[in-house]
Every structure is written in C-alpha cells, then in structure tokens.
Amino acid sequence: MLRLAARRVGLAVPILVGVSIIVFLLMTILPGNAEAGLVPEDATPAQRAAIRDSLGLNDPLPVRYVAWLVEALRGDLGYSLQRRREVADLLVQAWGNTFVLAAVSAVLGITLGLLLGYVAGTRRGTLVDRVVSIVSLAGLSVPSFFVAIILLSIFAGGLKMFPSGGATFDEGPIAAIRSLVLPVASGSLITMAITARVTRAGIVDVLSADFVETLRAKGLSELEVRTHVLRNAISPVLTTSGVQIGALLGGSVLVETIFRWPGMGQLLYTAISSRDLVVVQGATLVIALTFVIINLMVDILQAAVDPRVRGAVA
C-alpha cells in the first residue's frame, strides 16, 4: 500500500512538470508584449530592447523556463501590474475563498448524492427511485449559472432571505455563512446529481452480482449485506467525486461571478478580461496542481478500498 502510494506520487511528478511547461509556453506564445505595460507608448525600439533584455525576455526559452520555474517553486509567481500586488498573494486569497465554497459544496453534494443514490439503488423501480432519477437528471441538465440566477432572484431578490453574495470570513462568520448559502446551493447541485447517479448505478449493478446471494445464503442481515454492496459500489463514486472536487476547487467562474464570490473563478475572469497574463498563468498553474493532487488522492484512496485496483497498478 505504501509502495503503491509512493509510486503514484512518483508518477505525478512528470505530470506536474508537463503542466508547468505547457502553462509557461502558453504565456510565451500568446500575443501581447510583456514589456508593453512597463514602457511608455513613445519608447524607442532600442529602449524596448533594453527593457526586454533586463527582464531576461531575450534569453532562450529553456533558460527562461528554468528561471520561471525556480521562482515559482520559491513562491514567486510574478507581480500583477494591473492589480499592483504579488500574484502569489492574490492566488492565496482567492484559493482560500474558493476552498471554503468548494469544500462546503463538495461535502454537501457528495453526501446528499450518496444518500439519494443509495436510497434509489436499493429501492430500484419504486417511486422513490424514479423521483431521484428525475431530480438527478434535472440537476445534471440545468446549468449551474441558471440555477444561480433563479436562486438569486427568489431568495435574494424576492424573499430577501439571503444576501446576493460578496461577504467572506473577513466580515464575520455569520455574514459569511449567510452569503455562502446560495452559491453552495447552486454549486453543489451538479455534484449531488452526478454522485447520486453514479452511486445508484453502482449499487444496482453490485446488487445483481452473484456474491450478494452468497452473503444472503450465509445468513448475513440485510444491513451487513448492504455494507458489502456499498464497499463494492464506491469505486466509481470516488472517481467522479475527485473530478467534481477538482472542478469545484478550480473555481466556478460563472457561479462566483454571479454571487460576487472573490475566489479563483472570479480572479481568473477579471484577469482574463484585463489581460493580466501573469495572474492567468499563476491561476492556471494552481488549478492544474489542484487537479493533479486531487486525482492522486483519489487514486490512492481507490487502491485502499479496492484490491483489484491495487493489483492493476502493482
């Protein structure tokens, strides 16, 4: 198990290097001059060249990549001229806000999804099953920004029960929790729907497996049988949950923008619209890193739960 974890971590390293190369290259290929913001409009070509030279922009790509990577590893992702702040500071703050939103959304969505999927799967063909199927299909089909707008107009606009967003933990826990309600509701809906569907499918599948008969025939109670069933059905749920958590941590641009939640999504959105390339670069790197780490955790967790996965890797 430990060896497997080590192997998986080892495998993640080349992926991370690849990600960093792509992120770095993207920024160098993109049109627009890095020095444009630093020199006055009427600067001579010679002056521009001097600036480029002093910034190291004329060095060969590999040299620039290594220099950038070393700085990035030391926590220096550059300085945003537009925002007049260190990119790393911006990212830490935005990531923290997104993390709160994502963690609450993920816990809520996955828990509810597991519960609904379990109930539906074990009562296959009943009314409960059909209701859950319809609800989860609807949750998947309706885009989260649409849900966000509907929730916003009902609960913030009409009923004025919750703020339309904005508050973070800087403004006290109660204000933060109140402003979390609507974004969490719209953000966790898809996670819940996907988790419910995958859980239901898994449980229905496992319940028809032969070994369930063996378990019943040896006298296990229904509860004990279902513990076995759930252990067997959990693997695909882990996979989709990993993807969902990754997506939530990457920051939902639309949901965060609609609720003015100062997270990764919003940071990325404003950075793109103001052509703040260093921020875009840093944010992309952090989001990619988040995905890789989440997937790594899912892989290890899956191997811990399912011996067949362990066998396939080792």
């Binding site: 497996a209 032969d210 070994f211 008969e213 063996t214 378990l215 076995h228 252990r231 067997n232 739960v305 399912d306 011996p307 067949r308």
Partner: peptide
C-alpha cells in the same frame, strides 16, 4: 469466480 466478494479478503 463471482460467488465471493471481490473487495474483501
């Protein structure tokens, strides 16, 4: 091949 629970020892 299918009568035993695959994820339990």
């Amino acid at each position: 091949l299918t009568a035993l629970d695959p994820v339990y020892t």
